[in-house]
Computed example of a mutant assay.
Amino acid sequence: MKFALATPALNTYPAAMAPWEPKAGGAEILRYARKADALSWDWLTLPEHLVMPAEMKEVMGSRWAESITAAATLMGATQRIHMLTYILPLPYRHPLLLAKQIATMEFLAGGRFTLGTAVGHLEKEFEALGIPFHKRGAMTDEYLAAMKEAWTSDTPAFEGEFVRFKDIVIEPKPVQKPHPPIFIGGNSQPAMRRAAEHGDGWIPWLVTSEDLPGCIAYMKSLPAYEAKADRFEILVTTTAYKVDDYSHAERGQTQIASDRDGVLREIEALQKAGATSVQVMPPRHDTLEQTLEWIEWYDDEIIPRFR
Rank of each mutant, 00 (worst) to 15 (best):
residue 98 L to A: 02
residue 98 L to P: 05
residue 99 A to F: 04
residue 101 Q to Y: 05
residue 101 Q to C: 11
residue 102 I to E: 03
residue 102 I to R: 01
residue 102 I to A: 04
residue 102 I to S: 02
residue 103 A to I: 02
residue 104 T to K: 06
residue 104 T to M: 11
residue 104 T to A: 14
residue 105 M to R: 00
residue 105 M to Y: 00
residue 105 M to F: 06
residue 106 E to L: 11
residue 107 F to I: 01
residue 107 F to C: 09
residue 107 F to T: 00
residue 108 L to G: 11
residue 108 L to R: 05
residue 109 A to H: 13
residue 110 G to I: 03
residue 110 G to P: 01
residue 110 G to C: 05
residue 110 G to R: 06
residue 111 G to Y: 08
residue 112 R to L: 11
residue 112 R to W: 09
residue 113 F to W: 04
residue 113 F to D: 04
residue 113 F to Y: 09
residue 113 F to C: 02
residue 113 F to K: 02
residue 113 F to G: 02
residue 115 L to K: 00
residue 115 L to Q: 04
residue 115 L to G: 00
residue 115 L to D: 05
residue 116 G to A: 02
residue 116 G to I: 02
residue 116 G to P: 04
residue 116 G to Q: 04
residue 117 T to I: 13
residue 118 A to T: 01
residue 119 V to R: 04
residue 119 V to K: 01
residue 119 V to E: 01
residue 120 G to P: 10
residue 120 G to V: 08
residue 120 G to K: 08
residue 121 H to L: 14
residue 124 K to C: 09
residue 125 E to K: 06
residue 126 F to T: 01
residue 126 F to M: 01
residue 127 E to V: 10
residue 127 E to F: 01
residue 128 A to M: 11
residue 128 A to S: 14
residue 129 L to W: 08
residue 129 L to Y: 12
residue 129 L to M: 13
residue 130 G to N: 06
residue 130 G to D: 08
residue 131 I to N: 07
residue 132 P to N: 06
residue 132 P to Y: 02
residue 132 P to A: 03
residue 132 P to F: 00
residue 133 F to Q: 06
residue 134 H to T: 10
residue 135 K to W: 06
residue 137 G to Y: 13
residue 137 G to P: 15
residue 138 A to H: 10
residue 139 M to V: 00
residue 139 M to L: 05
residue 139 M to R: 06
residue 140 T to Q: 07
residue 140 T to I: 03
residue 140 T to R: 05
residue 140 T to N: 05
residue 141 D to A: 09
residue 141 D to Q: 08
residue 142 E to A: 09
residue 143 Y to A: 09
residue 143 Y to K: 14
residue 143 Y to V: 07
residue 143 Y to M: 13
residue 145 A to W: 06
residue 145 A to Q: 15
residue 146 A to I: 13
residue 146 A to E: 14
residue 147 M to K: 11
residue 148 K to D: 03
residue 148 K to F: 00
residue 149 E to L: 03
residue 149 E to F: 00
residue 149 E to V: 11
residue 150 A to T: 09
residue 150 A to P: 02
residue 152 T to Y: 06
residue 153 S to D: 03
residue 153 S to C: 03
residue 153 S to K: 02
residue 154 D to K: 12
residue 154 D to C: 03
residue 154 D to G: 12
residue 154 D to Q: 12
residue 154 D to P: 03
residue 155 T to E: 13
residue 155 T to W: 05
residue 155 T to K: 08
residue 155 T to F: 06
residue 156 P to I: 08
residue 157 A to K: 13
residue 158 F to Y: 15
residue 158 F to I: 11
residue 159 E to V: 09
residue 159 E to C: 08
residue 159 E to A: 11
residue 160 G to C: 07
residue 160 G to D: 10
residue 161 E to M: 07
residue 161 E to T: 14
residue 162 F to S: 08
residue 162 F to L: 09
residue 163 V to E: 04
residue 163 V to L: 07
residue 164 R to T: 15
residue 164 R to P: 14
residue 165 F to T: 12
residue 165 F to G: 10
residue 165 F to R: 13
residue 166 K to M: 14
residue 166 K to D: 15
residue 166 K to C: 14
residue 167 D to G: 05
residue 167 D to M: 03
residue 168 I to T: 13
residue 168 I to Y: 07
residue 168 I to E: 12
residue 168 I to Q: 14
residue 168 I to K: 12
residue 169 V to A: 11
residue 170 I to S: 15
residue 171 E to M: 12
residue 171 E to P: 02
residue 172 P to S: 07
residue 173 K to E: 08
residue 173 K to F: 01
